[in-house]
Nucleic acid binder design. Structure first.
Lengths: 241, 241
DNA sequence: TAAATAGTGTCTGTAAGACACTATTGA
DNA sequence: TCAATAGTGTCTTACAGACACTATTTA
């Protein structure tokens, strides 16, 4: 019986897919690895559980703070899943619990602790493999981005990319960047307003930018959108296999 | 540095939420635990990783076969997520990767290996806690059922509950059981037919049952439904907080 | 004034839900 | 024949997408 105890023990890490918007494009925080294996390669921020009683989500929040200087608790953080293919890490049997974090525009590049360097990479360039990642992190990023895209449809997650107050065009640019589509501003406007509790006016205030000043809004109490904001691209009938 | 290696090592298990339909209601496979902890209590089938090189999904498939006598590979099996709260298992730091499995009607109760007994429990009675579960398995079941409900909307998963061929009323009863709602048969009929590639006629055959014989269908090539089959209950505007 | 962005209204097609009606079996 | 289940048609309402139009700012 004790064999089984020994044989089923694995090393546990947390990895983070931290998404934000920079210059209207979706970006992802990557670190340049300071140690072996994959030294010098880019990877997701993350690390081993600190001790045997550390909660997994808490460990993710800790790494978020250590490696990205971000205060969890203020931003969206959720589990993506476990990635534990036997060969994924040459150090042994390492199972990683990946998490998705969404942050509004950030102060700037953040120096990691045991990372050589950290920078914001455009998600496109990661997904098309022009920025190669260590381990199975490309798969994790793919899953994380898809999760974010899907959650934008049915939840108010998009407001997590914005500051405390925002204009509806800013919110629209969030949807456009994450989905990488373009939307009709007028239909978007009408639709967002039609979802009760999604956004609420934040004062009669306004803000200049070139044309007519836009009304400001802040996130409303609703977390589940009804009706949902559906992605386009579904236009063609979905077929496969 | 080696402290960290030691301190981040955990025991890994897989747990299974195995759903099927019995007497038009959604059922879940539970085992009566044969050992401590929680001896005698009901729990999800599952167990420790067999060895350090066993793949997690493969371990889930193995447990599916060992504890339920089901051949994975024939049925739907996907990861739900990792459950690893520090206090969840008195034996130490145990992290479980939960999986969802969907099976058509099964031969009958299945005797487990290291389980005292196994039986099909109505999901309602588990969710309302009239059948209490060991560990954090209620949470896992809740997540698994919600995942199944959501997947019925956007994928052809419902056909996995049916046999090779089925009538549209049978398919409707799947939706009604999993969603625990009732649907208008006529609208359901029209809608399913409108999703291209969801179901395809299986011969001009028919099958008796009391009234007019129904046409038989089998699962089509489509895995992603367009348009999706949306759940009712969303009728009221979704608010919270 | 023109250029630019914000915001409103209107039309059209598609799909959801309600429900009347016809069809085909067994008893 | 009646009861029961299968399958079709039709109406109303809601919403997505296209797009004309008005409003309010800076240059």
């Amino acid at each position: 019986m004790n064999d089984r105890w020994e044989s089923s023990s694995v090393l546990l890490t947390v990895d983070l897919v931290i998404l934000t918007l920079r210059e209207e494009r979706l970006h992802l925080l990557l670190v340049e690895r300071g140690h072996q294996p994959h030294q010098g390669a880019f990877a997701l921020p993350g690390g081993f559980l600190r001790n045997r009683s550390e909660d997994i989500l808490a460990a993710a929040a800790r790494e978020l703070s250590e490696e990205a200087g971000l205060d969890a608790g203020m931003l969206h953080l959720e589990q993506l899943g476990a990635y534990g293919e036997p060969g994924r890490d040459p150090r042994g049997r390492v199972v990683s619990v990946a998490h998705l974090a969404i942050a509004p525009r950030l102060p700037e590049p953040v120096a990691g602790t045991d990372a050589a360097d950290a920078y914001w990479a455009p998600v496109d360039q990661v997904l098309d493999e022009s920025v190669p990642l260590a381990f199975d992190h490309l798969q994790i990023v793919t899953d994380g981005v898809e999760r974010a895209r899907a959650k934008l449809e049915s939840t108010a997650l998009a407001t997590a990319f914005c500051g405390l107050t925002f204009t509806l065009s800013e919110l629209q640019r969030v949807y456009e960047a994450v989905w990488s589509t373009s939307l009709d501003a007028r239909n978007f406007y009408r639709k967002v307003q039609g979802v009760s509790g999604f956004v609420i006016p934040a004062g009669p205030t306004r803000r200049t930018e070139g044309g007519r000043p836009a009304r400001l809004f802040r996130a409303g109490p609703t977390t589940v959108l009804y009706p949902p904001m559906v992605r386009p691209s579904r236009t063609e009938r979905g077929e496969d296999q």
